[in-house]
Amino acid sequence: MAKVIFPSDLQAFTGDTAEVEVTSVNYRDLVAELSGRYPALTEEAIRKHALAIDGMIIHNPFLEAFNSDSELVFFAKIAGG
């Protein structure tokens, strides 16, 4: 199963859970699976973050798929200068 790592701000919605395994293999299912598992973790809160899939940071991962052994890290969107 893919491993999801939550940053500190999202851990506030997961009951301090920092890491979780998921069965999803694409972003849309991932959002549904996580918000189903953690009701406080809304889709809106998730979509404020970029997602790093196996080290590749994707600003808007809406259509992204990943492998069942992928490592997924939610990552606060930041602006450059």
Binding site: I5, P7, A52, G55, I57, E71, V73, F75, A76
Partner: peptide, 8 residues
């Protein structure tokens, strides 16, 4: 790193 994304 602290922000969680492994370095390549």
């Amino acid at each position: 790193p602290l922000f969680g994304v492994p370095f390549q």
